[in-house]
Amino acid sequence: MEAPRKETGFDRAAAITRSLLGYGVLAGVFYVTLGLGQAFMRDGFDLSRHSLSLLANGPWGWVQTLNFAVTGLMVLAASVGIARALRPARLALTLVAIYGGSLIVAGVFPADPMDGFPPGAPTGAADEMSTAGFVHLAAGGIGFVALAAAFVALGASFAARGHTTMARSSRLSAAVLLLAFLAGAATATSILGVVLLWIAVLVGWGWLATTSVALYRAVPHPDLHRRPQTP
């Protein structure tokens, strides 16, 4: 009996999908690494009291603005990769893309200086919220809600494909992210509020990365000769 032959060639579509999904992993690493790097280098910044959004203020604020913009573009790329891997997945694409867009908007409109940062800013919250500060806060709220909803949509897609563990984890991540964000936003000027916001951020990035890796592995290898041999 003749042995099955392996196909040769390159699947460009699979390669593109895998590349786009890679940004779902890189986005969170890039954002958190660059943010923490600034946090330890900027005078007056205290991780126990200040959110990374405040880094967009002051002489070096452009670095955090760039952080938001580049990270947002990575998330937009990942949203396309997710949609290609889970086709059809328009809802997940739209929701993850909204989160990416919210990051870009949050970078263009910085948070108001507060609680002593940058140096010279008033203690506690600003007496009046600026237009930029309001847009930044609204973008953050819309973005986190969209990301939580995206996790629910992804959970449904995983469930439909029989991946029960991924489905449950997606829904759990959505609940933790949303609750932590809402509670953190309500207590943003306290240490607890900062901790809760960090939980929301890390859960969001962590599950986006986990989902991207899972889908990356599910996409067939672009080199056809490296795919499992079919009878």
Rank of each mutant, 00 (worst) to 15 (best):
R217K: 12
V145A: 15
I191L: 04
G9F: 00
P110A: 03
S169R: 15
A185T: 07
G143N: 06
F158Q: 03
A78L: 04
F158R: 08
L208G: 06
L182F: 02
A3M: 14
T123F: 14
M41C: 02
I142S: 02
L66V: 13
D127C: 02
G72T: 09
I16P: 00
V219E: 00
G107K: 05
R161T: 14
L224M: 03
V29E: 03
L93W: 04
A159I: 09
A27V: 05
W207N: 12
R171M: 05
F109I: 09
P220K: 01
R90Y: 04
F30Q: 04
L52W: 08
L93H: 11
S19A: 15
L202M: 15
G140T: 02
Y31S: 05
M129T: 13
V96Y: 01
L21I: 12
R84Q: 12
T94F: 10
A183D: 08
M1G: 15
L55M: 11
A85M: 02
T123Y: 13
A56W: 01
Y216H: 11
V213T: 10
F117A: 12
A146T: 12
W207M: 14
P122I: 10
D43S: 14
W198R: 13
D223V: 01
F30G: 03
P118N: 12
R84G: 07
V201Y: 03
G22Q: 02
R42L: 10
L179G: 06
G101W: 05
A175P: 06
Y216M: 07
H136I: 03
V213K: 04
A200S: 15
P231N: 13
R87E: 05
A126N: 12
N67F: 08
A150W: 00
I98H: 00
F68L: 09
G141I: 04
R18C: 00
T33S: 13
R217W: 02
A138Y: 04
M1V: 13
A175I: 14
L95D: 07
A214I: 09
G162F: 07
A126Y: 09
I98P: 01
P220E: 06
T17C: 11
F109D: 13
M41R: 03
F117T: 08
D127L: 12
D127M: 13
F40V: 08
G44Q: 04
A78E: 06
A146L: 06
R90T: 08
V75Q: 01
R87V: 01
S48M: 14
R87A: 10
H163P: 00
A77C: 15
G28L: 07
F117W: 14
V219Q: 01
A200L: 02
A56H: 06
A15M: 07
L172I: 15
G101R: 06
R87G: 00
S19E: 03
H50S: 07
Q229T: 15
P231C: 07
L178H: 02
D127Q: 15
R90Q: 10
P59V: 05
L172K: 12
P118S: 09
P119F: 09
G28K: 03
V96L: 14
S53I: 10
A126W: 11
T210R: 12
G24N: 10
D112N: 14
S79V: 10
L137T: 06
A149M: 13
R161Y: 06
L47W: 07
F117E: 09
N57L: 05
V80L: 13
R49E: 09
A111V: 13
T17A: 10
H136Y: 04
L154F: 03
A121P: 10
I104A: 07
R168L: 13
